[in-house]
Design a binder for these strands. Structure first.
Lengths: 148, 148
DNA sequence: CTTGACCTTCCCATCATTGGAAGGATTACA
DNA sequence: TGTAATCCTTCCAATGATGGGAAGGTCAAG
């Protein structure tokens, strides 16, 4: 199986498969004489595992831990559970932070006429030096919500 | 006022003030003979506005729009409201996505013994080729939740 | 006049991912 | 068999917002 077929079968792009190999998340793969990577069902299975972990928002670092636990038949389920629960904690803090932003903004928007007049509580609040808006300050990684 | 004092007064780091200037979010500022940037109260006020918008999760691009609306006395409140509500939509979609991840993981963790035994439903689910875990796939920007 | 605290610009790193260029390999079809 | 299309390879760059740090200039207090 070439990388393109493995990408199709696993749902991980060819670009990312090469990247995962380069950072050591997956081992270096067998090549043909001409340098093409060759994948088997086992590799695709691993890639699917990785994709599902990504879909659950695990970082590559966490995924590396999960993969090695997956491949360790002697692993203790508490190690896996600890990673999962730590991630749940991160997710829930982030959810709370976004909810605070959202409710503040909804409140401001509710009090804004939204017509042609220049009076706008949203702007006024942003410009108000005494305002304490969202207590949760987003970190860099989550500040920008726009899609590329 | 030097950049360090402006940073203290506004809550925006000196690094970021220079960055905002470099991308045109704030205009080029007056310099002393020796090249030091000089800020006045008005500039600090603008920086506070920007910081509050950042704290609400607006992207720099959105902030640029908000700043120009703020400084436009003829602006229509509907323009501001539209930006705010669009942002609320983004926030809520992201919240929903994170909630789905979180509840899936909590469910899996609940069914995991978390002891020394190797049986672990979390790993088994990740490895299950038929599994449909989180329907919401995080985009690149939000996939990794780990802090740097 | 020295010391320390500030400022300047410039480059690099983050994190996961995408895009593209340049060039070689393989496949499909006439 | 020739050739065109489609793959593959590596390498480099960009994303967004921010922090870190180096090398060197400036200023204020002692």
């Amino acid at each position: 199986m070439n990388i393109g077929q493995a990408a199709n079968a696993s749902g991980v792009s060819a670009k990312m498969i090469r990247y995962y190999e380069s950072i050591g998340l997956i081992p270096k793969i067998v090549r043909t004489e001409s340098g093409y990577r060759v994948y088997g069902d086992h590799d695709v299975h691993t890639l699917r595992f990785i994709r599902r972990a990504r879909d659950l928002g695990f970082s590559v670092e966490q995924i590396a831990d999960l993969v090695s636990l997956w491949q360790d038949r002697e692993r203790a389920s508490k190690d896996v559970k600890a990673i999962a629960l730590e991630h749940v904690g991160v997710l829930e803090r982030k959810i709370k932070e976004l909810q605070e932003m959202s409710s503040t903004l909804k409140h401001l928007a509710r009090t804004c006429h939204g017509d042609g007049r220049p009076q706008c509580p949203i702007i006024e609040e942003l410009a108000n030096d005494d305002a304490v808006l969202a207590s949760a300050k987003p970190d860099a990684k989550f500040g920008a919500l726009g899609k590329p």
